[in-house]
Simulated assay, not measured.
Amino acid sequence: MIGGRRTALSLTVYLVIAFGLSWLIALPLWLSGQGLQHPLFGAIAVGMMATPAIGALVAVFVVERGPNRAERLGLWPLRPAGRFWMYLGLGLVVPVALVVAALVIGALLGTYPADFARFSGYRSLLAATGAASLPIPIGLLVAAQYLNIVVGAALNLIPALGEELGWRGWLLPKLLPLGTVPALLISGAVWGLWHAPLILLGYNYPTASGWLGVLLMMGMCVVMGGIFGWLRIRSRSVWPAALAHGALNASVGLSAVYARAGESVDTVQATILGWSGWIAPAVVVIVLLIAGQFRWPTPAEQRRRRAF
């Protein structure tokens, strides 16, 4: 069990701040009647991403207090260095691989209209933007998207840290006394539910009714939260999870690159957002669980790490 009144209080404070501030920041989208078309939507979305970090910082510095605050948030220490850099690299690669796997699986199941050979959808997109006349082979343009993902992941690192400092940095370790699987399920579901102010307006799932979209987002966040949680636990750091979050956000556009021209992509069914896209990350998480890859260090192990 999660013991202690202070722990219960810190969890309550964290959730109230993370959820309350996110709804407060998103309020202009609702009050204006413009929804996702609000001219400040991008700024509002980025502002929302900071609310879990604010909640975690208040929980650690105001409610819990005590020593090793940076360590409790997963910000420090960044050692052993070899382990840290390895998982940072995995944080960049694994989400992109899972996004691509989701498209392949969707194509095999018939949920994703793929064109992996001619990139007809991407060609149409380039034509619509006036870039089709560029004297560059289409294959090279597709390959360049992966370089864009690396850049995008780096640029998204700090905004993504705003979420990950809360979800994986602080909340997941706090829930681990319940057991690894419950902690992953609860933290992932809470993460998905936190997106409700945008999902209810049609974000990510424009073809789904409001609360169905929220449930779908919770499902996606549970499976991908398992991947991010693995990176957090194995690296003992929040940074690989934050980079993975940034890489995920930067790579979702690959669904437009590999789609077949003239076909619509239903995110309820396909891409990493839809049910067919959850298969690959769910399998990876199950394999990692069976292999014992989610073991949190004991207090003695944590003390030894601080001594180096």
Results as ranks from 00 to 15, higher is better:
residue 74 G to I: 01
residue 35 G to Q: 06
residue 31 L to F: 05
residue 29 L to I: 12
residue 30 W to F: 05
residue 37 Q to G: 14
residue 40 L to E: 08
residue 75 L to E: 00
residue 45 A to G: 01
residue 78 L to H: 03
residue 62 V to S: 07
residue 90 L to W: 14
residue 41 F to A: 09
residue 62 V to N: 15
residue 91 G to I: 06
residue 73 L to P: 02
residue 70 A to Y: 04
residue 71 E to V: 01
residue 62 V to P: 12
residue 43 A to T: 12
residue 29 L to N: 08
residue 70 A to D: 07
residue 78 L to Q: 05
residue 60 V to G: 10
residue 94 V to D: 15
residue 40 L to N: 07
residue 42 G to I: 03
residue 52 P to K: 03
residue 96 V to P: 10
residue 34 Q to S: 12
residue 34 Q to A: 15
residue 35 G to R: 02
residue 39 P to W: 14
residue 44 I to R: 00
residue 55 G to D: 04
residue 47 G to Q: 10
residue 32 S to L: 07
residue 67 P to T: 02
residue 40 L to V: 09
residue 58 V to R: 09
residue 32 S to V: 11
residue 41 F to Q: 15
residue 61 F to G: 00
residue 41 F to I: 06
residue 71 E to K: 01
residue 32 S to M: 08
residue 59 A to E: 06
residue 50 A to Q: 10
residue 68 N to A: 15
residue 54 I to L: 14
residue 53 A to S: 14
residue 63 V to C: 03
residue 92 L to Y: 12
residue 32 S to N: 13
residue 83 R to I: 11
residue 82 G to L: 04
residue 40 L to Y: 09
residue 65 R to I: 12
residue 74 G to R: 00
residue 66 G to D: 05
residue 54 I to F: 13
residue 54 I to W: 11
residue 70 A to E: 01
residue 84 F to G: 05
residue 98 L to H: 09
residue 32 S to W: 12
residue 29 L to G: 09
residue 98 L to P: 05
residue 77 P to S: 05
residue 97 A to P: 03
residue 36 L to V: 03
residue 27 L to H: 14
residue 30 W to E: 08
residue 71 E to H: 00
residue 35 G to D: 08
residue 28 P to K: 01
residue 53 A to V: 05
residue 89 G to D: 02
residue 37 Q to E: 13
residue 36 L to N: 09
residue 84 F to P: 03
residue 36 L to T: 12
residue 44 I to P: 01
residue 82 G to I: 04
residue 72 R to N: 01
residue 75 L to Y: 04
residue 84 F to D: 11
residue 98 L to C: 08
residue 42 G to N: 14
residue 57 L to E: 14
residue 72 R to I: 06
residue 67 P to G: 11
residue 63 V to L: 04
residue 83 R to C: 02
residue 31 L to E: 03
residue 37 Q to S: 03
residue 97 A to D: 11
residue 51 T to Q: 04
residue 34 Q to K: 15
residue 47 G to K: 07
residue 35 G to N: 13
residue 38 H to W: 13
residue 28 P to C: 06
residue 53 A to C: 04
residue 47 G to V: 12
residue 63 V to G: 15
residue 54 I to T: 10
residue 62 V to W: 07
residue 94 V to F: 09
residue 67 P to D: 14
residue 68 N to P: 02
residue 34 Q to Y: 15
residue 50 A to D: 14
residue 77 P to V: 01
residue 30 W to V: 02
residue 93 V to M: 14
residue 40 L to W: 10
residue 39 P to N: 11
residue 52 P to G: 10
residue 94 V to H: 11
residue 37 Q to A: 15
residue 39 P to E: 15
residue 56 A to R: 05
residue 32 S to Q: 13
residue 30 W to N: 07
residue 28 P to M: 06
residue 38 H to M: 10
residue 45 A to Y: 08
residue 33 G to M: 13
residue 92 L to S: 02
residue 61 F to E: 03
residue 33 G to I: 10
residue 74 G to P: 04
residue 31 L to W: 06
residue 54 I to Y: 08
residue 32 S to F: 11
residue 87 Y to F: 04
residue 65 R to D: 13
residue 72 R to M: 00
